[in-house]
Design a protein around this nucleic acid. Structure first.
Lengths: 220, 220
DNA sequence: CCTTTTATTTAGATTTACCTAAACTTTATT
DNA sequence: AATAAAGTTTAGGTAAATCTAAATAAAAGG
């Protein structure tokens, strides 16, 4: 199956929205994810259905077929491996790599992808904590799922960040939060769902619900 | 200046044909280099002229402007650095990397390009022996220029290969010819311009003019 | 120098991936 | 259940990069 860059981007976004729990991905949701218009999504949906990569009926939303899922995992694999490359080998920081990987991911060569993986030591997670599918399209573990704002635990470790925008990642950098950082929850404020945190001996600080939603943690 | 992939490919090809000695690059030559039709070239020529990357008058052929040359060198730099990466780090052989680099070269990020260069140890030549322009767009030396079929010398060293097609490179692989290989010319046959060669102690073999044209050498 | 050949350009279509505006479904609300 | 609101699709259009076929210009040959 030979996909255009646009088609790959649609597949990737559909996969993402399905992962986030949407039973069937709506035209609107996909349009806003891809920063395009609903009418364009309808057009593309017809094309991807033709190619048997999605299930789609008028007004009923979109789901990936098995083939579509396979394609998505292949794109995600390439994306995350390039992110590792940029961080591990070219010394980029985690907030810089998403956009570049968006471009590099579209160079389709299984041989290159597999050699890149090997060169990087077959990494299991990317710089944002997301698991990297293997050459067969198997995703290690299904990504760390507990966002900080839904945990009760007091001592936590950051395992992933779900929003890859430069803005959020730079904010986290500034606060000293990165992958593996240990957090102590000092206080949860009901009225705005903000959370007061502390890292080791550093002074405490507060983060909004917006932020805590995007920090995936596990108790320690 | 933001160029599309198509525009970048035109710029690169114009640069190549100018290098090969064409005073003004003809519509036909460019069309066949890019494997497209003359009519398409005319269309694109108008656009690139608009962007001040080429000089172009109807029926008069095409030349790069200073800006066009700068753009070309930037693309070539990216192309050749990725070729080095693929060969040095991912263990590809020289006949496999051209196509992949054609795609990777279109990811435009000066920061990434410069870091890639540094990561590779700021290489001066790519796996085919072509010089790599530096970050300022300066090309080390102007590529080794003597094709094997034009030399009189008997003892030679291979310094570059001008045709990057898989076919030629695989043929050279099979014969044991690679960058730095030392050749002894046994005989030159006038009637078809073929050349009989020997490498060290191996048995002699003959190559056609087609091939010898594309092997750049220096006497030793 | 005139004619033929070759090279180049124009005109008009096509494809992909978009868009806007209008029409139509579905869902939510009273 | 009727109607309003929200979501989705259709219809028709645009821009980029192609193409074919026809027209035109330049070069080559007698």
């Amino acid at each position: 199956m030979n996909l255009s860059i646009a088609e790959e981007n649609y597949i990737k976004s559909i996969y993402k929205l399905e992962e986030e729990g949407q039973e069937a991905v709506s035209t609107n949701a996909l349009a806003s994810e891809l920063d395009t218009k609903p009418a364009s999504v309808t057009d593309m949906a017809k094309k991807l259905k033709e190619k048997k990569l999605i299930e789609y009926e008028k007004y009923q939303g979109i789901n990936l077929t098995a083939d579509g899922k396979k394609a998505a995992l292949s794109i995600i694999r390439r994306h995350r491996l390039w992110e590792c490359f940029l961080v591990d080998k070219l010394a980029f920081s985690w907030e810089e790599v998403h956009e570049l990987a968006e471009e590099l991911e579209h160079v389709r060569s299984e041989k290159m992808t597999n050699r890149l993986s090997e060169f990087l030591g077959n990494p299991q997670i990317d710089p944002h904590g997301d698991p990297i599918p293997d050459a067969q399209g198997k995703m290690g573990k299904p990504r760390a799922h507990t966002p900080l704002h839904k945990t009760k635990a007091k001592r936590l470790e950051v395992v992933a960040v779900s929003d890859k925008s430069t803005a959020l990642l730079e904010f986290l950098n500034a606060k000293g939060i990165r992958l593996g950082t240990q957090l102590d929850v000092i206080e949860r404020y009901e009225f705005d769902n903000s959370i007061e945190l502390k890292i080791r001996n550093q002074p405490a600080f507060t983060i909004s619900e917006q932020v805590s939603k995007n920090i995936m943690v596990k108790p320690i």
